[in-house]
Design a protein around this nucleic acid. Structure first.
Length: 874
RNA sequence: GCGGGUGUGGCGGAACGGUAGACGCAGCAGACUUAAAAUCUGCAUCCCGAUAGGGAGUGCGGGUUCAAAUCCCGCCAUCCGCACCA
């Protein structure tokens, strides 16, 4: 092989032999060597009986440049992918682009660049950046979600979902900017105002498309139990998000009907507390509200105030609790003659339950605060058994206890009272037991241009009609303008005007596009056979799916992962896939953070533009800079570090080593330049050690005859093999790196010729260092390996090392001796020594004997090969 | 507001309930060098003590245990998510 041969020349030329590792030449050379040897490509449908590993990192949004967060993310998968390949797996490790989305439209509006052009340019430059990192990716599988060849299949999937009854149209709320006359994303609503116009945002209802994810609520919940290679916290978050609850739905009868409305339907998980009711509250978005507002200007004003904030739940729920007494009253379902006021309350969500609640202040904290604010009654109906005279002040009582003041429920515990109350509701025909979900159906309509067109045609005669499959893909027109607010598809001269596929009359296309989460809900299945004529290739997905290691940011713990799980189940049901869960293993990485900088007039600055001064302050063009908090690197805040410039200066291996070196991968990491220097030194050191050892003479003593310091070095080598292999499996890459440093230190500390077999032992050690670190720093590994094995294969093609168990085993162990749990000394014993031996030797230690003088040993604890602890009395 | 995390030296962090601070960064001292860089060697949680040694110590306050960074309860700080950013 050409690169290896050229390295031999290096060794033979003394003038060059003193040179350091030249990453500039080497990295490109080895990347080409891997490509020429086709190291990372796999077949759609591999034959043979090897195990498979599908390693996937969440694909990037092509924002323009890769940033450190990307590199870190891809490196986590990269190490697993390279290690699994060496361990004999078929490894699928693809890359693509989550290419639709809002930023492309923002670029179009702000800078007049076409979204398609902007996106393609970004992809081209990011692809180049990524390739320079030297990732072991099968680039032949690359696609972008904005390719018609991809989104056409997505449209086909949508039509299949529709036929299967998983698609619905209904009204739901959006953020409406009354000045820009456009729908805003939650992100574009800042403190209740449009980010550009500054106008107060209104909640407005639009007819939109939904996927019925709630049909899968039970399955998605149950499926979490099978995901034992997911972080527990993510499963917990999903469980809470799905939010299955058992309770009752009941109708409160209005004392006086309003128009033709006779009652208000309420969902509650606490039917046991119905006698503690003090009010009924409905959401400002409740249908009844519009009826009330007619002829009631005060109510109308309150409602419009409530609606003049975005749709985001965070905004609604953290706003000050406010209410409006409508003057209406409802009757209690059980207590004869009792009636309660109906309030409109800004914290009641229309999207959960029925959009109406009954308020029981004594046993719900939020209701209690509301009742105190508006001086509503508070009736305690559950008391703890130990404190039956409990008086509610500022804290609602939500625990179990005895039901009181509740007629037929008196004396029951909470659980029995719920059952009894529901039975009573059912027998009176005013309510029923109901399982309710916090999970809502997935609204997939976006009033945006840069997304996958929803393949639907609206015909005056035939109504809503699917595009026929022969006409897929419905292509997004690229000749659009952004000189007007709103969706360019709406006012494109020709695009939306088509003939109805059913009757042939003139009709219009749906101009909403899909939520980009749809694009990312099945791309992993497409990667298995990216050129298939159907959305998925059954044999390819049968071989590769599910993804064995899915790696991405914790910020995706709920939405993306839940949508992808839903899509996978729906695709399975419709025959597009053979599995229920897309990702059997999940790893969520922390974020890469950095200070943010802005000018005094508020413009964000890149770290490169800012000059930091010794006192910690910063300047830009001679002007002072406002230093923001350390937070997630994001394009909008420009607090990103560009990996390309670091690769330029230090090489890809330095960046690869550094992003894994210091932090546990699940934790956030702050980028520091100092760390990069250290990583660079290590890369150089590996090469230097390899060159030194390559030049040392062999001797005739076999590895197995290594003794003394040579045997000690061999033990370190083999223990490192074990430790590194295990740590990789646990994603503990910072520990992998610590162990590799230790091995490098051991090699540095070993003296050539100092012990029998040292020459072979040093050679074995450097080979292990090279091959164990190769998944992280593959370029210098190849370069170093070629020095030692000039006619060898590529490290990328070598099998993984296995440790010799006799060398991993300890000759002796250090046992800590404690008195009352405090460390008082240590002793060395052969492993497996008995408790009696350990006690005897511990007691014979002068230091221990002295410390025990004058006290009586009352208990002796022995943990084999670890601890001896004496419990004493003085 | 609700749900979920995290908190250990100057810094990033390591540690199956069992010797807290591995490994790295920065620092200090020394070697090499005309010098610098690079490299190599050593020191390094804090307090008391010359040393031997002793005491304290993993955000704060409690608890369980022979033994707690680790398990439990309460608090504080901070980060992530909250359905139209991706």
């Amino acid at each position: 092989m050409l690169p290896a041969k050229s390295m031999v020349d290096h060794i033979e030329a003394p003038s060059i032999s003193t040179e350091a590792y030249d990453f500039r030449g080497a990295e490109l050379r080895w990347q080409k060597a891997w490509q020429d040897a086709n190291c990372f490509a796999v077949a759609d449908r591999p034959s043979g009986n090897r195990s498979k590993a599908y390693v996937l990192e969440m694909f990037p949004y092509p924002s323009g440049k890769i940033h450190m967060g990307h590199v870190r993310n891809y490196m986590l998968g990269e190490v697993i992918a390279r290690a699994r390949r060496a361990q004999g797996f078929d490894v699928l490790h693809p890359m693509g682009w989550d290419a639709f989305g809002l930023p492309a439209e923002n670029a179009a509006r702000e800078r007049g660049i076409e979204p398609a052009q902007w996106t393609r340019d970004n992809i081209a430059s990011m692809r180049e950046d990524l390739k320079r990192v030297g990732l072991s990716i099968d680039w032949s599988r690359e696609f972008a979600t904005c390719d018609p060849a991809y989104y056409g299949h997505q449209q086909k999937l949508f039509l299949d979902f529709w036929r299967a009854g998983l698609v619905e149209q209904r009204e739901s709320a959006v953020n409406w900017d009354p000045v820009d006359m456009t729908v805003l994303a939650n992100e574009q609503v800042i403190d209740g105002r449009g980010w550009k116009s500054g106008a107060l945002v209104e909640r407005r209802r639009l007819r939109q498309w939904f996927l019925k994810i709630t049909d899968f609520g039970e399955e998605l919940l149950a499926g979490l139990e099978t995901l034992d290679r997911w972080p527990e916290r993510v499963r917990l978050m999903q469980r809470n998000w799905i939010g299955r609850s058992e309770g009752a739905e009941l109708t409160f009868e209005l004392v006086k009907p309003v128009k033709k409305i006779r009652g208000i339907k309420v969902y509650t998980t606490r039917p046991d507390t119905l006698f503690g009711m003090s009010f009924l509250a409905i959401s400002p978005d409740h249908p009844l509200v519009d009826v009330i507002a007619v002829g009631n200007p005060e109510a109308a004003e309150f409602i419009s105030a409530c609606r003049s904030m975005g749709t985001s739940e965070a905004a609604i729920e953290s706003a000050e609790k406010r209410g409006f007494d409508t003057g209406l009253r409802v009757s209690h379902p059980f207590a004869k003659g009792a009636t309660y006021p109906v309030w409109i309350a800004n914290f009641v969500l229309m999207d959960y339950g029925t959009g109406a609640i009954f308020g029981c202040p004594a046993h719900d904290q939020r209701d209690l605060e509301f009742a105190r604010k508006y001086r509503l009654s508070v009736t305690t109906v559950v008391v703890p058994r130990q404190d039956q005279d409990l008086v509610i002040e500022d804290t609602a009582y939500t625990g179990d206890g005895l039901v009181v003041r509740s007629e037929f429920l008196n004396g029951l515990d909470v659980e029995s009272a719920k059952t009894r109350a529901i039975a009573e509701l059912e027998s009176r025909g005013i309510g029923r037991r109901l399982v309710n979900w916090r999970l809502r159906d997935w609204g997939i309509s976006r009033q945006r241009y840069w997304g996958c067109p929803i393949p639907v045609i609206h015909c005056d005669k035939c109504g809503v009609t699917p595009v026929s499959e022969a006409d897929l893909p419905v292509r997004l027109p690229e000749d659009v303008t952004f000189d007007k607010p709103g969706n360019p598809l709406e006012y494109h001269p020709t695009w939306k005007h088509v003939a109805c596929p059913r009757c042939g009359e003139s009709a219009v296309r749906e101009t909403d596009t899909f939520d980009t989460f749809v694009d990312s809900s099945w791309y992993f299945a497409r990667f298995c056979a990216p050129h298939a004529k159907t959305p998925t290739d059954p044999l390819a997905t049968k071989y590769w799916m599910p993804v064995d290691h899915y790696i991405g940011g914790i910020e995706h713990a709920i939405l993306h992962l839940l949508y992808a799980r839903f899509f996978t189940r729906a695709m399975h049901r419709l025959g597009h896939l053979g599995v229920d869960e897309p990702f059997t293993g999940l790893f969520t990485q922390g974020m890469v953070t950095h200070e943010s900088y802005r000018t005094t007039d508020g413009r964000w600055l890149y770290p490169d533009e800012v000059v930091k001064r010794a006192d910690g302050s910063a300047i830009y063009n001679g002007e002072p800079v406002i230093i923001g908090p350390i937070e997630k690197m994001s394009k909008s805040k420009r607090n990103t570090i560009d990996p390309s410039s670091v690769i330029e200066r230090f090489g890809a291996d330095t960046v690869r080593w550094f992003v894994l070196s210091d932090n546990p991968p699940e934790r956030d990491v702050e980028w520091t330049e100092a760390g990069a220097q250290g990583a660079f030194r290590f890369v150089q050191r590996v090469y230097r050690l390899a060159r030194t050892i390559a030049s040392e003479p062999h001797d005739s003593i076999a590895l197995n005859d290594a003794a003394g310091a040579a045997r000690t070095l061999r033990q370190t080598t083999h223990r490192t093999i074990t430790a590194v292999t295990e740590a990789i499996d646990h994603f503990a890459f910072n520990v992998v790196i610590a162990r590799l440093y230790e091995l490098a230190n051991a090699i540095t500390d070993s003296e050539p010729k100092s012990a029998p077999g040292m020459a072979a032992s040093r050679r074995e050690a450097i080979m292990a260092l090279i091959r164990l670190s190769a998944p992280i720093i593959p370029h210098v590994a190849e370069e170093s390996y070629a020095l030692l094995e000039p006619n060898g294969r590529l490290v990328a093609q070598l099998p993984w090392l296995t440790a010799d168990p006799t060398l991993v085993q300890r000759d002796s162990v250090t046992i800590a001796i404690q008195i009352m749990g405090k460390l008082r000394g240590t002793i060395e014993l052969p492993p497996g020594a008995t408790a009696e031996t350990a006690f005897a030797i511990a007691l014979a230690e002068p230091r221990i004997a002295r410390a025990l003088e004058g006290s009586t040993i009352v208990k002796r604890i022995h943990v084999a090969d670890r601890i001896v602890n004496f419990v004493v009395r003085t």
